[in-house]
Every structure is written in C-alpha cells, then in structure tokens.
Amino acid sequence: MTSDEALVAYTLRLADNALVLSQRMLETVAAEPELEEELAHANFALDFIGQARMLYTQAGELEGQGRSEDDLAFMRDENEFRNLLLLEQPNGHFGDALVRQFLFEAFYLHLLEALTRCTDEGLSAIAVRALKEVQYHFRHSSQWMIRLGDGTELSHARVQASLNNAWRYTGEMFVADEIDLAIQENHGGPDLASIQKLWRRDVEKTVAEATLTLPDDEWMASGGKQGQHSEHFGFLIAEMQYLQRSFPGATW
C-alpha cells in the first residue's frame, strides 16, 4: 500500500464513521424525549453529515478516479464501508444511543485533536473544523450521561446496562492496523495508544460523576475497520442507497 493509498483509506474510514453514525441518528428524528433535544440532535447529525461530505470529497480527490462524495456514500457495497462497529449498532432506547455517542465522541475528540497536527493539510483543515463541533457534542453527551446516571434509579440502571452492552465495541477504536500506522508514520497522524489513555481518562471521569461503574475489559468485537460488519448493517446501507441504486446515473 502506497502512502497515498493509505491516506485515501484512512480518510474514507473517517468519512464512513461520520456517515454511518449520522444515518443511525436520522432514525430517531421526531422521536426524541423533548423538543429541545430534538433541535440539538438534528444539529449534531447535521455536523456529522457535513464532516462526511468534506471527508468523502477529499478522499475522492486524493484517489483521483473521479468519484464524488455521493459515489462514495451510495455506490459502495456494505463490505467496502470501514466504519467502527460501535457506530452501526441499532439505536435501542435513548440511553443506548447516548452511550454509543458518548463513547465514540470521547475517542473522536482526541483523534481529531491529533489530526489537526498531521502533515496532510487537507485532513488537518477538516479536523480543525470538526473538532470544534465535536467538543460541543461531547459536552452535551457527557451531561446527559451524568443526568441519566445520577437521575432516577431506573435511569441509572438503564444507562449502566447500555454502557455494559456497548463496551465490547470500544476495543476496535484503539487497535492500530497498517493504515493507522502508515498515517502515523508518513503524515504525523495519531498514536492510538496515547489516544486510548486520554479516552479512558475522560470516560472514567464522566462515568464516575454519573455514579456509574466502568465495565471490565472483556472480549472485544472487531472487524468494522476491515469491512466485516454486523448483520443489521446491510439494512442500514440498503435503505440509505436505495434511490441511487434504483435509478443509476440519475441526478437528484
């Protein structure tokens, strides 16, 4: 794999993360617990769609085969998507969706922060912009973790179960493969081991304030970064891509 190929693959992974998470978030629009949360939720999903668009456009340009953001989002098969398994998990209830968001954002925040210092100018510029957005998201998701954890007995029990269930999907974030290593070596990209320390510190802090218990690190799922997804992922992709696939070549 050349240095440029690694950069394309890496940028696509970031784009896939943002798109797949936003796609899940769209499923709960008009079903949030209160109107104020509806507005915040839509805002955050819009940020992720915006990030996906910038990243896909950049990946398409780097790749140089004329693929647009929409070609990359709508015309790749499910096993070509390289998002984290955590992000494709079904929404479940508000606490489940929140924990997914919180665990990812705690990671993504530090990843973006490191990427603002990478040597690829295009990627660092996107990271600067996305970082501002995700800092705000993370404050919001952390506050909800605390409210639910330290709210009622019921909310405490529910969000603790959500945390326990989602935990197995966190390991994958920190397992560096050849693409991660290539970005680190050739472009001054993030060191996932140090990101993991920062992630753990932030997660522990909020979990403690929420009076919740950090789950034990047991078996960790992986495969998303290599294109091996969960069974329900195919449905997410089929739904998202159906119009583009039904009318090939049409302009929308």
Partner: peptide, 9 residues
C-alpha cells in the same frame, strides 16, 4: 418512550 429520560433530567 422519553418519559424516563425527562424524569431523570
């Protein structure tokens, strides 16, 4: 579905 969330808040 949101009742428990609002109550927690």
């Amino acid at each position: 579905d949101g009742a428990w969330v609002r109550e927690a808040a």
